[in-house]
């Protein structure tokens, strides 16, 4: 089971990433909107920082964030759909 703290960080990553997904689709049809280009760059930096924090505490959410560790935690952490009905 995830701790409250882990759940919170995952939730914040989801929120930041949602902003990135939404801005990216918007920018596909508005590529000259400079303000939005700055927003997405800023959110990308924040997400990168949070992904690194998450990896160091709970293991990687993506293989490209995996770090030196005694075992391959990517293979050992549960799939994201686990955690519902007991």
């Amino acid at each position: 089971m995830m701790s409250k703290e882990q759940e919170k960080l995952l939730y914040e990553i989801s929120m930041i990433d949602f902003a990135i997904v939404e801005l990216n689709e918007y920018l596909d049809t508005h590529p000259h909107d400079t303000e939005s280009v700055q927003y997405i760059a800023q959110y990308n930096r924040v997400k990168h920082k949070m992904m690194r924090e998450y990896t160091s505490k709970y293991g990687p959410l993506a293989v490209r964030y995996a770090e030196d560790e005694p075992e391959w935690s990517w293979a050992l952490t549960p799939m994201p759909w686990e955690g519902g009905c007991k």
Partner: peptide
């Protein structure tokens, strides 16, 4: 690239 998380949080109790 895959990210091991759902796009929206999900925890169905029933």
């Amino acid at each position: 690239n895959y990210e091991k998380r759902l796009q929206y949080p999900l925890k169905i109790k029933n």
